[in-house]
Amino acid sequence: MTQPSASIEDYLGAIYRLHPGNDRPLPLGELQEHFGFSPISIHEMIQKLEQRGLVDYLPYKGVSLTEKGYIMAAALVRRHRVWECFLTDALQVPIDEAHDLAGDLEHAAPDWITERLFTYLQQPEACPHGNAIGELAAIPAELSIDRGAVGKAYLITHIFPENRESLQMARRTGLLPGESIRITGRTDIETTIEIRNQQKSFVSEDLNCFWGMEITDGT
């Protein structure tokens, strides 16, 4: 699976914003009203999200984020709000225009850029619209996959350093941002990973450029 598309992230962000508690299903009618799309279009996208393990859908009740989906949505919303602060505070962009521009930047900027920007802005507590950005500690910790625990599942978040070898390996093996994996075994030299229901073995040292955060569903 490749990096989630902007449309997928938009849906995750909308579910997160419309029902931040995520303690009950969000009726699909609220998504239809939010986006202005037809019920068929909404349902088709929810099916795609469910297939990717990002949401749970209950017919006639609604949709809720899985842990994997919640992590991605929370990170997206955080990026959006940090960029809004930068646009309004540093560049003096009006808040309504800043919201639309941040809607583009939230998809393009990786989390590490957002965190550097957050520090540059002296860690604002809220976006220009008054919504809390949240503490950095609330963002799930990332680690390189070679240091992951056997039996645990991880969502790959980014590749660093980005060089020809690591990017070619990512394309060849499917270890791409947005992909979920499970570490199923490890020896002194090799690490075995389940990815897309297949077991693959890697030299452990080769995995130190793939970074991820722990999830519980792993699918």
Rank of each mutant, 00 (worst) to 15 (best):
G62C: 05
A73S: 03
N208H: 10
P177L: 10
E44K: 04
R182L: 11
R52T: 00
D23W: 00
H129C: 09
G62D: 04
M1Q: 12
R81H: 05
L87G: 03
A149E: 15
A75N: 10
Q199W: 08
L76C: 07
G29K: 05
I15M: 01
L136R: 13
R147I: 06
N22S: 07
T119R: 14
R171L: 15
G212M: 03
Q123I: 04
A153D: 09
M45W: 03
T88K: 03
P39L: 04
N22E: 11
D96H: 13
T119S: 13
A126M: 11
A126N: 13
L76P: 01
V77E: 11
Q123G: 02
E142N: 08
N163K: 14
V55Y: 00
H107L: 05
A132E: 15
G69E: 04
L31Q: 00
I139L: 13
E97G: 13
I139A: 07
K68P: 02
D89S: 14
F210C: 02
E125F: 09
Y11N: 04
R196S: 14
P20Y: 06
K152W: 09
I40T: 07
D111A: 08
I15R: 00
S180Y: 06
V55P: 00
N208D: 13
K68D: 11
E179F: 01
E214P: 05
G174H: 12
A73G: 01
G69T: 02
H43C: 01
Q92S: 13
D56M: 09
I46P: 01
N131Q: 14
L105M: 11
A6M: 04
E165Q: 15
R172C: 12
Y16A: 03
N197M: 11
S38G: 06
H80S: 08
P177H: 10
I145S: 04
I145H: 02
P177Q: 12
G148P: 07
R79Q: 02
R116M: 07
L31K: 01
M72N: 04
T191L: 08
F118P: 02
H80F: 07
F210K: 04
S180H: 06
L76I: 06
R81G: 04
P94W: 11
E44T: 02
P20H: 07
L49F: 01
P124Q: 09
A74H: 06
Q3D: 14
H19T: 07
L175I: 05
L28Y: 02
A74R: 11
W211P: 02
I42N: 00
C127F: 03
S144L: 05
M1G: 14
R171F: 13
I183F: 07
T191D: 07
R52V: 00
E162C: 12
L87M: 05
C209I: 06
P94H: 14
L58V: 11
A138E: 15
I145G: 04
E205A: 15
K68T: 15
L76G: 06
R172F: 14
P177D: 12
I133C: 04
Y120N: 09
A74N: 08
H99F: 10
P20E: 09
L207T: 11
V82A: 03
I42Y: 01
H34P: 02
A108Y: 07
T219N: 14
T187R: 11
A108Q: 15
